[in-house]
């Protein structure tokens, strides 16, 4: 028993394998979007001047940039508030989703009894329920967090349940023959198996939570990006509106990046994490 049969000869993935990899990554992953960005912004600026597009229809990038600089810290204060609402709602909604999803995975009665109502609740348009939640939770930041949490709840409840149920039957047999307890099966097998699903839910929630926070601010707010967008719209200050829109997108991207990074660290073994190594 010495030789091992047919290794694929695939090297183990090394962590932090030097600057050369960073450079290739910069070249392959960073260069294309940066090039597209420069090209699009250039064409946009040039086009709005060439065709004399009115500023209230499409402001040129330079005017949006000016607006950003003019507002100075104000826009980032608003953005910070919206980000906080989105993040807090994301955490609370996701945590509740994880708890209920786990309960659904372990109790068929709960899943059958509650699932129709959870699905029904999820079909309520957020713009319809936001005023109600604001009546309940008041005019402060708490109501914005509540709207965001409401939106973030469903994707995780569903994905958590699916994830916990998606284990391999033979792996379950291995645990059973090894005389594992229910807790050991949960911690050592079902929870790790569910992680890729959990991250799918978390990534959905990133988008939903920013939407939730801004919509709640549309309904009632005296600060935040949603408030800023509404006031810019009423005064037809279009460069400011565009600036707010771009910053809100930036929040989403930043947020998404954080989750994607955590995913990479948490489940490096999952096949979705290897897509960039082999075509």
């Amino acid at each position: 028993m010495r030789s091992a049969s047919g290794a694929k000869g695939q090297p183990a993935p090394h962590r932090g394998a030097g600057t050369r990899r960073m450079l290739t990554w910069a070249k392959e992953a960073l260069l294309p979007p940066v090039a597209v960005f420069i090209l699009v912004v250039g064409l946009w600026e040039w086009g709005t001047h060439l065709f004399e597009v009115p500023v209230y229809v499409v402001p040129p990038p330079s005017r949006i940039w000016e607006s950003l600089l003019f507002d100075g810290t104000a826009i980032f204060t608003h953005a910070g508030i919206t980000f906080f609402e989105a993040f807090a709602g994301f955490v609370i909604g996701s945590a509740l989703g994880i708890i209920l999803g786990t309960a659904f995975a372990y109790s068929r009665f709960l899943a059958r009894g509650l699932m129709p109502y959870v699905i029904a609740a999820n079909t309520i348009p957020v713009v319809a329920i936001a005023p109600i939640i604001i009546i309940w939770f008041g005019h402060g930041i708490i109501s914005k967090i509540a709207v965001t949490a409401f939106l973030s709840f469903f994707p995780l409840a569903l994905n958590m349940m699916k994830g916990l149920q998606s284990y391999d039957r033979t792996v379950m047999d291995v645990f059973h023959v090894s005389a594992a307890s229910g807790w050991q099966k949960f911690v050592k097998m079902r929870l790790p198996t569910s992680l890729p699903y959990v991250f799918v839910g978390l990534k959905l929630n990133v988008t939903f939570s920013v939407i939730g926070a801004i919509i709640a601010e549309f309904v009632q707010a005296d600060r935040g990006l949603g408030f800023m967008i509404m006031t810019a719209y009423r005064t037809l200050n279009m460069p400011r509106l565009w600036a707010a829109m771009l910053v809100s997108a930036l929040i989403g991207i930043l947020f998404f990046g954080i989750i994607a990074l955590i995913e990479r660290l948490a489940i490096p073994w999952h096949s979705s994490m290897r897509s960039n190594q082999k075509p």
Partner: peptide, 16 residues
């Protein structure tokens, strides 16, 4: 006969 492969992950190994 798997000496040297203990640090690998399952997906890096052949079926055998």
């Amino acid at each position: 006969g798997l000496s040297g492969f203990e640090r690998q992950y399952p997906n890096q190994l052949s079926g055998g």
